[in-house]
Computed example of a mutant assay.
Amino acid sequence: MCGGRGRVVAERASGPAGVRGIDHVGVTVPDLDAATAFLVRALDAEVLYDTLRREEGPKGGAGVEARLGVPAGTAEVAIRMLRLPNGPGLELFEFRGPRQDPAALPCDLGWQHLAVYVDDLDAAAARLAGAGATLLGEPRPLPERESGPRNRFLYCRTPWGSTLELISYPDPQPYERRTARRRWRP
């Protein structure tokens, strides 16, 4: 890691851990089947498998509490892995327990939204609304460093209150003129 700046960047990109990218995102939902239906309809998600079927659960106790860092009395009711068409998996969790806060808002600490790249933002927004999402305004141009004639985004809320962003940036972005680094694009 001592070496020139280029060497540090190269080592970071291919370092000993071999980090490649996001495999899946875990999402806690109030109703596994309803959330699955929404994500299939809204985002073309595909059900891969159930890690924990409802009839096998719930699973709780000290092991679950320690492994997940959840309060005593929390139990996993059902877990399902979905896959987006060209992206990471979505692992859905349904829990029962003494504490279940509402979904995080963008102003809360921690992971606060999932962004999905789409080719046709207007069609994707209409599809989300038709599946039960609440659109938070109209599609907007991406800000200055990401701007381009057709580069836009839109936030919405899932039926259970999580924040979902639709984003599309088919045109070159201004930051690309200042660096060889590029954000990952599906």
Rank of each mutant, 00 (worst) to 15 (best):
M1Q: 14
G6E: 08
R7F: 02
R7Y: 13
R7D: 14
V8C: 04
E11R: 14
A13Y: 05
A13I: 00
A13D: 13
S14W: 00
D23V: 00
G26E: 06
T28W: 07
T28K: 11
V29L: 00
P30L: 08
P30R: 09
D31G: 03
A34I: 00
A35T: 02
F38K: 03
V40F: 10
A42H: 08
A45P: 03
Y49Q: 14
T51L: 15
R53A: 02
R54V: 01
E55V: 12
G61P: 09
A62P: 14
G63N: 04
E65L: 00
R67Y: 10
L68R: 11
V70N: 06
P71H: 10
V77H: 04
P85D: 04
P88T: 10
L90Q: 02
F93L: 12
R96L: 15
P98A: 09
R99E: 15
R99I: 15
R99G: 08
Q100A: 15
Q100K: 13
D101L: 15
A104H: 12
D108W: 13
V116F: 05
A125C: 02
R127Y: 03
A129H: 15
A131G: 05
L135V: 01
L136Y: 02
P139W: 01
P141A: 11
P141G: 09
L142C: 13
E144C: 02
R145Y: 14
E146S: 15
S147N: 07
G148N: 09
G148Q: 07
P149Q: 11
P149S: 06
R150T: 00
F153N: 05
L154V: 07
T158L: 12
T158K: 07
G161N: 02
L164D: 10
E165G: 07
Y169G: 11
P170F: 05
D171V: 03
D171G: 03
R177T: 10
T179I: 05
T179P: 10
R182D: 04
R185E: 15
